[in-house]
Design a protein around this nucleic acid. Structure first.
Lengths: 355, 355
DNA sequence: TTTAGCACTCAATCTCCCTGAGTGCTAAAC
DNA sequence: GTTTAGCACTCAGGGAGATTGAGTGCTAAA
């Protein structure tokens, strides 16, 4: 099913026209915009054939044509030109990346907000562990004689802490002993391995030490659980309403609810690794709520076996080229940022390293 | 301007009818629902007077009456009955409070989500410091010879950490020295006081030590800044669309955008301390976007001079009694939770304290 | 002071009609 | 065989009445 050059030009013209105007594209408009030296009648004949092939469709008999999902797919795969970001776009994104960020979680949330502001579409962001995380180190800091702070480090470079208050006082030496025990017996273990190990050790351990151990190991398990669970952050959901395809509430509400409830849940999105940018068009989506919408997402490396995914959701009539370019640029920026292990210099405010 | 008993009954009937049906309330409906032994004509006369007083209004001549903001205000102040939560409502909230939570920030976010699910209204949540926080303690944990973790504690019991990588190796003793310096010179200072102190110390300190000090103190400043900034978390924004007053996009969109953009920004809401539940009706709101909506919020104590506020936003026709009851119950639960300093027992899974 | 009765008002809804953009088809031209 | 001009046809969108019905205000009697 190879398309003639002219059919390709017409398809491209329909897609690009429709992306801009959101109105069905008529034969005359094609003549005007495509630069083809034929009459509108010829275009009509060609469009009729494109419709038979399932690449275009008509909302009703006397309207122009709009691209079908299949048409979008062909456009994205073969016809779309690589988009370049303008300098100022790129600068905007660079500026956005130079924010004060500390925790992975915050990065996700912030990144989503920025992308949403930039694109005027709702975004979602999530992290995906490619392997199971383990705790590499425990530090216990005495606060008062019945309170301490546990600081945990994982092999993914995450550091988490928690404040513990105990029912009875503990001495500094007891705490040190506890720390040694934790570091020897409870490091390098996955979430699933921690529970049985806790049971094993508790049978040996002195009765007194067991309480605090249980507390800290439970905390360790929570931390690992959190790292492994793909919590989804969403942002900018109301931006949907600015787009004509979501002007009617019946269309907008289910999708908005879907996005809103997606937040916090484990991701159910078909995130494929390896690819940089991935475009899922209309009915290609698994979720019913997304059947009339498209999703564009980019993944980036966080290091330590973690991968981040950030994407935008919008009508099938999105500017795929533009969005794909922005997302992949942003994702590259994030990869770079995490790759360096440190945040790029904030620019101003004195040097960090020289006296 | 004292109202007759009958007028009060009529006003109450209008408000409560309208809260349920969202339709203007006619004189016959009042006769049916209020139990008053008079005819609809009498009610009409009374309602005309209530309208003159500014307590009721008519969307158009031939419609029933709806409460004016002033009418709602009177209802809330004088006529509203204290609402009791049903046992299962209370249990739901209690269950919701028994979640795994670690960081204040997470508590806010989670609490918002829960309330939104419970009430079907959008929620916002924020914390408010009643005084300026200070760092009480620094701990530096060596990771590798050119990397360490700084753990900071504040007087509000918050513990924050950050992983630092250095351009050149540091010895354990250097790190200890650094820790001592930090703990002696940079504790007990407010955000504003840290900057000049950093300048003062840096002139004395050995050149080598300055780099890491600068890093850690900058981090401390970020932490304090974050604690003092009232970041607002929002949840459940799309639930707005389920309510008849936001069926038209022109009404819904500005409010949704307002709420969405409020997230992350410093709060601009008139949060008054001391009161438990606060109700702001329609035009009483300062923000233009809220002039047609009402806000119900409850505050709770977090301890350490921090106060949390959680609220819902909805049409002026909200069930004030019901929502106020739920919010205040929830807020009490949170206060209790923070007051204990520990999370209530998760129920199951073995005891924490006994061997 | 209350009630019954009646004329009046007005949002909401429906129907009908018109308009215009755009199509498909046919027959002629290239 | 391909392209073009011409024409009849279709149909969403929008505006102009017409209809409905809930609810009111007012008046006169109880």
């Amino acid at each position: 099913m190879e398309l003639s050059e002219r059919k390709k030009q017409i398809l491209r013209a329909v897609v690009e026209n429709y992306i801009q105007t959101a109105d069905p594209v008529g034969s005359k408009a094609i003549v005007a915009s495509s630069g083809l030296k034929v009459s509108s009648a010829t275009i009509r004949n060609e469009m009729a054939e494109l419709e038979n092939m399932g690449l275009l469709e008509q909302p009703h008999t006397s309207a122009g044509r709009i691209p079908s999902p299949k048409g979008y797919r062909l456009y994205v795969n073969e016809l779309m030109e690589e988009h370049r970001l303008s300098m100022q776009e790129a600068r905007k994104i660079n500026d956005a990346l130079n924010l004060k960020i500390r925790e992975m979680d915050q990065v996700m949330t912030e990144a989503g907000k920025i992308i949403s502001q930039l694109t005027k579409y709702p975004t979602f962001a999530l992290t995906k562990g490619t392997k199971q995380a383990v705790i590499t180190r425990y530090d216990l800091l005495m606060v008062e004689d019945n309170a301490f702070i546990a600081v945990l480090m994982t092999d993914t470079q995450a550091v988490k802490n928690k404040y513990f208050r105990l029912p009875s006082p503990v001495s500094q030496t007891q705490l040190q002993l506890l720390g040694t025990l934790l570091n020897t017996s409870f490091t390098g273990l996955t979430l699933a391995q921690l529970q049985p190990e806790l049971a094993r050790v508790s049978s040996h351990a002195a009765g007194e030490a067991y309480g605090p151990i249980n507390l800290v190991v439970s905390f360790a398990m929570e931390v690992l659980e959190e790292l492994e669970s793909n919590v989804v952050h969403t942002a900018g959901i109301p931006t949907l309403l600015a787009h004509p395809e979501y002007q009617s509430l019946e269309k907008a509400e289910p999708l908005m609810n879907y996005l809103s409830e997606m937040g916090g849940e484990t991701a159910n999105l078909p995130v494929v690794q390896g690819e940089n940018v991935r475009i899922v068009i209309g009915p290609e989506n698994v979720a019913d709520e997304l059947k009339d919408s498209s999703v564009i997402m980019a993944s980036y490396d966080i290091g330590g076996g973690m991968q981040g995914v950030i994407g935008v959701v919008g009508p099938t009539r999105m500017d795929y080229a533009d969005l794909a370019a922005r997302l992949s640029y942003f994702a590259e920026g994030l990869s770079r940022m995490f790759g360096k292990g440190e945040i790029p210099p904030p620019g101003g405010d004195g040097g960090d390293e020289e006296p």
